[in-house]
Amino acid sequence: MTMTENEPPTVVADDGVRLWAARSGGDGDPLVLCHGGPGLWDYFEDLAELLADLTPVVRWDQRGCGRSQRSVAGPWTSERFVADLDAVRRHFGLERMRLLGHSWGAYLALSYALAHPERVSGLVYVAGTGIGPDSDWRPAFETNLLARLGEHPERLARWRELADRPVRSETDDREWAVLQWSAESEDRERAQERAGRMADPWFGVNHRCSRALEEERGRRCGTPGLYDACRSLDLPVLIVDGARDIRPRSAVDSLERTLPRVRRVILPDAGHMVWTDDPKGFRRAVAAESG
């Protein structure tokens, strides 16, 4: 899809860092999309197409990632990324915005809503990992990841080989990422093909960014302060899960139980890439919330 960019593609953060962003669709307040990772880039082209007649969207690449300025040394903190998201909001002239975040992006969107609830009109939290400690989900995720990769023993062996390398070339890093992402698709016959599409074009994973933000998120999740903040979040939140996500969905129960205004939709035949695995079900869930 060729995006109709109604605004210049570059957002300038308050510290001067340039962020790639683009708006597509018609009139009205857009749905601002936060991609996962951390350390990746916007992969929402098919989601924007799926929602095209429901809402305009804003897509952006997070700091140091994708088409955003790469020659930056962070800081790799959720506070900094929340400030970057606020720069996106200001750039597109939004007094309040609707947010959709996927995976790590769900955590980022939630963090923004907690920091600036007066600037958010609603939140769609897709395939996140909740607000409990990582022990709620990570061991099962790692087991499920190896089981999925083990469906093709040669792929598992190659993934292990690449994962164990202290330094990978860009070519090897792309191969490692495609192997890992292939475990996320519920269409097992087309999993490798779908993962390859996510890596085309290949912008390179920002591993330094990824490690720092994951460590920070791990320290914050499970803390009383995060639970208390979520209990006070007076905003409508839609949680959308794929029941077959290799990250156990029970991890998100912690968030669902805590939020005061929440609706949850679990799509039984979808995995982590929920809108790809069940586009009709995902569209219905978002359309109901928009309506």
Rank of each mutant, 00 (worst) to 15 (best):
P56G: 12
R89N: 05
V12I: 15
V120N: 06
G25V: 15
R63E: 02
R257D: 09
F81N: 07
D187G: 11
A13N: 09
H116R: 14
R138K: 08
A109K: 06
R263W: 08
L100G: 07
V252M: 06
A157V: 00
A109Y: 10
L108Y: 03
N144E: 15
F282A: 11
K280T: 14
P56V: 13
H272A: 10
E216D: 03
G132V: 06
R284T: 15
F92N: 03
D269K: 08
G128H: 03
G64A: 08
T223G: 07
Q62V: 10
D277R: 11
W20V: 11
G36V: 08
A177P: 00
W41V: 10
D27E: 13
P30W: 10
K280V: 15
S24L: 02
S185A: 14
R247N: 07
S210R: 12
P9N: 09
S121T: 15
E184C: 02
Y107A: 11
G196V: 02
H102Q: 11
S78M: 15
R197I: 10
L33I: 15
L259I: 03
D27S: 15
D53I: 13
P166R: 01
W104L: 06
E95Y: 02
E7L: 09
D61I: 09
D134I: 09
P153S: 00
E289L: 15
G128P: 00
P224W: 13
W202H: 13
H91T: 14
A73F: 01
R63K: 00
G66N: 12
R190M: 09
G28H: 06
V205F: 10
R264A: 03
D42M: 13
D253N: 12
L145A: 00
G74D: 03
P236D: 09
L114F: 13
D136K: 04
V274D: 01
R63W: 02
D53M: 11
R190S: 13
W104Y: 14
T258G: 07
P268G: 02
A191G: 08
N6A: 06
T276K: 01
S68E: 10
W202Q: 12
S185N: 10
M97C: 13
